[in-house]
Design a protein around this nucleic acid. Structure first.
Lengths: 345, 345
DNA sequence: CTGAAAGCGCTTACAG
DNA sequence: CTGAAAGCGCTTACAG
């Protein structure tokens, strides 16, 4: 219930308001006697600092925003998010920042959110995830108003903005190289949307692996998906005509859809067609499928982004920085049954 | 980049600061001419209000906090959260509140978060989810400092706090009544932790249904679980000795664990033992299991909580209010194969 | 419908 | 190590 102010604490402790402010903010150069006394009074009275006044005077809110654009639908299906949120939240706590969450689910939302976010002295900086849609509008707007920002994922135009992303090309390259080593040579790909950098990069990694291994690259074996299970299912159905012996899906959801399509015509995974996914989502233990897939360092993605952002906030803007994280191939049983030298679970 | 203040806008528009403030805040009683002119200047200059100054002067931050206690681990596995977050976030947007997210994952976290949250003028109010642990400490602390709060789920001590919850008793009662009607009469239960109200209520609903239908209630057929799949699996194994013909699990995760235990000894669901779950989590489509379960109105849970909280904030505290939402039985195929008159998917 | 003025509760050079 | 003072950028009775 305390509506006490610094002034009140000062009076009760017999010192000035400045001094109380200094002990509250844990500054140096306070005599132990004074510090102890003030701390005592604060504890007794239950004084709670006023965050708004603090922010107004110091020009720093110690709050950062996390914007998840248009993502609300995939938020349900993509187990990426819980982990991701945890990483970000933990990092914020550690560094004494508060996290404001903005889920953008409509154009109207976006407008409201954008004007809120760009209020002066609300947020010290913001994290923007580029969804599979590749949302440039928000990023551009934040650049315009000079708000410190770190993008999670690589935006299509990435020159003047800091981001942290996984190395999608190498991750896909490693996965497909593994498939080749397992003896497959008609390896199809179900890509993500090719307007997203994740979609493009994972496809490029696939192509690079084939080329490097001297496997003839058949355009008929590539089809663009949308990262969803249904999309994967459809894609696989069309792929079936071209008799692949394996398929690399750019998301686990699409891999699951593909597996259903394969099983749907009476074939088996991996005996008839091998499948490798991307994401390492938890698949129900009721499923007999043990998906070989790529695992992203989701936690570190979040914590790195937070730390980079805080650095930008506290130490100026500098040229944009880019952090690229490595992924890991998780070998299970949908692509050859014996595990080779690859990284296991 | 605008570091313009109200004063600047006032000067450029040839009016007073008060007037500019009024048009920014969309007050009545402003002449159209003035309003138009000021709006014009604001647009031209890209003026952005200072949130901290606003909050300090008005004593209202238009920000609410969402505290998810100790939940970080289940955040991964429980698909409840994404939906839940969406409902809350949408409602916040609609009412022009900003949402601050606090995931409590350790004692140390809790301390930091609590002192942050209780800062004056940071949050207008807070939403606290009572996890399966039933976290009273946070709720009590918020009551102590007089912070407006709405609990999501029913806290163990619920007298002096507002909450919104689902009617767990009736939900479980309806599910078990359905099982009885499907002809089962040795119906076991795997409950949640009996220190959580959700655990208790779902068990009580189960018992109520049996009693009301005149089925002898066998204590050996009840075992306490922990809401996890593994817990469900273990519980089912011990239950198997007592030859139930059906089992009501207080969470889908436990239902899945139970099904695996049943299948593990070569029995089938629902032919040998029927299973009903609780939550309606999405189970991978690779699974052949179509779980009959209880679906909670997760979205409404969130939006109701937000709206109740905003009401508390804006219209005073009054006596605590309690909102109880109904759930829905989703009949699929793990408890009898033909659907009866019950609510379908 | 509009303005002058007080006040919201802090932080932070500046002096000493 | 400590204090007096200015200032952060708004809102909101109060008058007119």
């Amino acid at each position: 219930m305390s509506n006490l102010t610094l002034e009140d604490i000062a009076k009760k402790s017999g010192v000035s308001r400045s001094t109380v402010s200094r002990v509250v903010n844990d500054h140096q150069n306070i005599s132990d006697a004074v510090r102890t006394r003030v701390l005592q009074v604060i504890k007794e009275t239950g004084y709670r600092p006023n965050a708004a006044a603090r922010t107004l005077a110091s020009q720093r809110s110690h709050m950062i925003g996390l914007v998840l654009p248009q993502t609300v639908s995939s938020l349900f299906t993509d187990p990426f998010y819980p982990q991701f949120l945890k990483g970000i939240s933990l990092a914020c706590n550690q560094h004494d920042y508060t996290l404001a969450l903005f889920l953008v689910s409509s154009e109207e939302d976006e407008h409201k959110i954008l004007t809120r976010i760009t209020n002066t002295s609300l947020l010290d900086g913001v994290l923007v995830q580029v969804g599979h849609q590749g949302d440039q509008r928000i990023i551009g707007h934040l650049i315009d108003v000079g708000m410190p920002q770190v993008v999670i994922g690589r935006p299509v135009q990435s020159d003047n903005v800091s981001f942290v992303d996984i190395d999608n090309i190498t991750a896909a390259y490693n996965a497909v190289t593994y498939m080749v080593r397992m003896g497959y040579n008609r390896i199809a790909a179900i890509t993500g949307p090719l307007k997203s950098t994740a979609g493009i990069d994972r496809r490029d990694g696939y192509i690079k692996a084939l080329v490097e291994r001297g496997i003839k690259f058949d355009p008929k074996l590539i089809v663009e998906g949308d990262f969803t299970e249904q999309g994967g299912n459809l894609a696989m159905q069309s792929l079936l005509n071209h008799r692949p012996d394996a398929v690399f899906a750019a998301s686990d959801a699409m891999a699951v859809g593909a597996i259903r399509a394969i099983q749907g015509i009476g074939l088996n995974v991996p005996e008839d067609i091998a499948v490798v996914g991307f994401d390492d989502i938890p698949i129900s233990t009721l499923s007999d499928v043990q998906l070989t897939t790529v695992r992203q360092p989701v936690n570190r993605l979040g914590s790195n982004a937070v730390e980079l952002l805080i650095d930008l906030i506290e130490h100026g803007t500098q040229p944009p920085r880019h952090i690229i994280l490595n992924s890991q191939l998780v070998v299970r049983s949908t692509c050859g049954l014996q595990s080779t030298g690859s990284v296991g679970h």
